[in-house]
Design a protein around this nucleic acid. Structure first.
Lengths: 367, 367
DNA sequence: CACAGTGACTTAAGCGCTTCAGTAAGTCCA
DNA sequence: TGGACTTACTGAAGCGCTTAAGTCACTGTG
């Protein structure tokens, strides 16, 4: 009964021939039901089912329509690293929800060595629009998007002319975080920064190195921290900066541990993400340091992690859902042919929880 | 200089015309450099760059080659829920790494109400192969894959004839987990199960309800637990079962909290995932229950979460990386035209850490 | 009754590329 | 010196669909 030879799949033409109508009519049966009588449409669909025709081939449809029906999401790292960041899941989900009405598929382009997907991958991706999620300034993927002439939505970074960008007030947030610590009386403050690049094992960084990060977000947040610290009369060059990925929890914990051992005088740590702050929390506990009595911790992002930490984390809140949603709306906007509006900058807000307090020995000799 | 009207992008033909060669030659310049002289190839590429031609249009190439160059990954839930599961990130990353040599793009198909992506989405997806990640038996997406005649790789469930499946020994793992508790002397054991379906708020379930789960994994794990419990002379119908999503941490904590209040006599909890066990750990702490003295906890999966919990979690280890890698290899196998091999079942192994101990008041009156 | 209108299809021109079967010229060797 | 190869390219037939424009038979109208 069933043809054993791996027959080619039936096409629109086969169905048309079977029903005795033109190919256009069959196409209309699927795409514009109002263009043919209900009776004929039923016959067409019936024949299609009989022949095992599963509907128009998506690739051919894309070619004929000159649009692929997909949106590609470019990540700065490989999948397990990228998705270790709760912020990504939330943003991506909001994005997916926002673009749902447009019936676009979502293609994932994992990143590699240069803080973005390989250019060649980008050239080959079937997508009508690309979104850059927190890519490095140096990502070659971005030039590839340019070359292809595809519209681009940028989430967070880098800020590119012509692209529709949505980001947050990183500067304001980090300033608020630093100000909070300064106002509590902290003078010995350290910074835990996101790692600049895939492959870097993490460790102590000079200020100049950290400020040369190819990730705009890192530069902004660091700038905010150090400006406020400097205003408070503390030499910003004396602020120790460590850099590692918060996404590899074990390594981050080890790194934070090493940092705290290296600088035992610190009374507070500014962390560029909640994941880093979580690692610091664990490291502090390992060292017998009480948070916040011995060590104050401030995070960034206010992901669900922040509230679940013990103690709950003081952090800089950003609207991850809103960011994803707006990115989705921008995508739809660009796809409809409109021009990229001015960059959207979402506000940030310091959320004070239980991980910060005045230093115990303010002015005295720390532990 | 630049044409202001939104010109159509140049095509292969434009480049061919500019260089004065045939279209085939330009195509070869990109796809089979050995088919033309290096000198001519350089001229072609040069002309392409000058004209702003970014290489063959991926959609047209797909059509001509009759293959889309993409693999679709079908999820059982929306993105933020799905990616709250660390197991997915790890598996997906291993999968992505495994298929990298094939140069396939990865399309994400988020799930909806029936424990899988909408059938219509599946019909429209540009992919040469679909992978079902932990989909419900009831997912209409699976029939859609059938209808399209696409090869299918199944991760975990459901077991489908004709598909290449890779799963784990859920039964053996859950039996080992239950046996461990029984051997420690526990008699009052509860079960925390994954929620059966999107939208269910979570709560107490009868045994029959739980056993009717459309998720094969749930049935297997529950079966393993209850069989061993019954063998130990405990009435399996007396075992309380709660069901909720471990992926919504706050709700899971609230659920576990309620469960522990509802059944204060329990000395141990079998959790179908580490995420659920993590929620139970938090809930226990909220109630002032010490783990493992007052309450033993066993998880499932051995994700990084397990080791980071306090106390570190006794759990059933499965090889998530291996599962993803094998799924990728199966995908490549099917794409090369070979038939699906017999299902691969990866072993599971109980990893005893610090979250389990004999019940304090063995035989005595519990707290 | 002629005529504009409408409904229901069909025609045919793409969409942009791959690839197989040539062809023509050049190279090699007996 | 001529047949057998090789190299470097071309011609043309698809891949499977969408859609604007066209055809044709009816219907209602002034």
């Amino acid at each position: 009964m069933v043809n054993v030879t791996r027959r080619r799949r039936p096409t629109l033409d086969d169905v048309a021939a079977a029903v005795g109508v033109s190919r256009a009519t069959v196409s209309n049966a699927y795409n514009r039901p109002d263009q043919l009588s209900a009776e004929l449409r039923a016959r067409v669909l019936d024949a299609a089912k009989r022949l095992g025709y599963a509907g128009p081939n998506p690739v051919a449809r894309s070619l004929a329509r000159s649009q692929s029906g997909a949106i590609a999401f470019m990540l700065d790292a490989n999948l397990s690293i990228a998705f270790s960041d709760p912020a990504l899941s939330i943003t991506l989900d909001a994005f997916a929800t926002a673009i749902a009405p447009g019936e676009h598929a979502l293609v994932l382009l994992p990143g590699g060595e240069d803080g973005g997907p390989r250019a060649e991958r980008v050239m080959r991706a079937q997508a009508d629009l690309m979104v850059s999620y927190s890519l490095s300034d140096k990502a070659s993927a971005l030039q590839a998007v340019r070359d292809r002439g595809l519209p681009l939505v940028v989430v967070d970074e880098p800020h590119l002319p012509g692209a529709a960008v949505v980001g947050i007030d990183d500067r304001g947030g980090s300033e608020a975080a630093a100000r909070h610590l300064v106002e509590l009386g902290h003078r010995r403050i350290g910074v835990l920064a996101q790692d600049c690049m895939y492959g870097f094992p993490g460790g102590r960084r000079s200020r100049a190195e950290a400020e040369a990060s190819p990730f705009r977000i890192n530069r902004e947040r660091l700038g905010g921290y150090l400006d406020v610290i400097a205003e408070a009369g503390i030499d910003p060059d004396s602020v120790p900066i460590w850099e590692f990925s918060g996404m590899d929890r074990e390594r981050a914990v080890a790194g934070a541990h090493a940092a705290l051992v290296e600088e035992p005088g610190l009374t507070a740590l500014l962390c560029m993400s909640d994941e880093l702050a979580a690692a610091a929390t664990t490291a502090a506990r390992q060292l017998g340091l009480r948070v916040p009595e011995d060590l104050s911790l401030v995070g960034f992002d206010d992901t669900p992690t922040a509230r679940l930490l013990d103690p709950p984390l003081t952090t800089v809140r950003q609207d991850l859902l809103g960011k994803g949603r707006i990115a989705g709306e921008l995508a739809l906007l660009l796809l409809s042919g409109r021009k990229a509006p001015k960059p959207t900058v979402l506000p940030t807000e310091l959320v004070v929880r239980a991980s910060t307090a005045p230093p115990v020995s303010a002015g005295g000799k720390p532990r």
